[in-house]
């Protein structure tokens, strides 16, 4: 994919909006632990088990009608669930 200058600028404009979006709660494997994290609002908490981390992050995402983002060991996104509607939807 070779992006034209216009395509790249449009992509960057969307990217800035997505990056500023609040209430995206990440569940991130890190060495022997799991991190629940959000950039906006700034939030970090460590867990010993994946289940405990997911449960906690899901609660935060539900309460704030945000998005739960599950990450793989390499940092890539495995799945996203949006709580912007009444129930979780994969996005």
């Amino acid at each position: 994919m070779a992006l034209s200058k216009t395509e790249f600028e449009e992509l960057l404009t969307d990217f800035r909006k997505v990056a500023a979006e609040p209430n995206r709660f990440h569940v991130i494997p890190y060495r022997t632990r799991w991190i629940v994290s959000s950039m906006n609002p700034r939030y970090t908490r460590y867990f010993r088990s994946r289940d405990a981390a997911v449960e906690h992050a899901r609660g935060l995402a539900e309460k704030s009608q945000g998005v739960l983002v599950m990450h793989r060991k390499d940092g890539d996104v495995e799945e996203r669930f949006s709580f912007k509607e009444s129930s979780a939807q994969a996005v």
Partner: peptide
Amino acid sequence: ERFSAFKD
């Protein structure tokens, strides 16, 4: 943590 959020 920030790299993971950036990738998202």
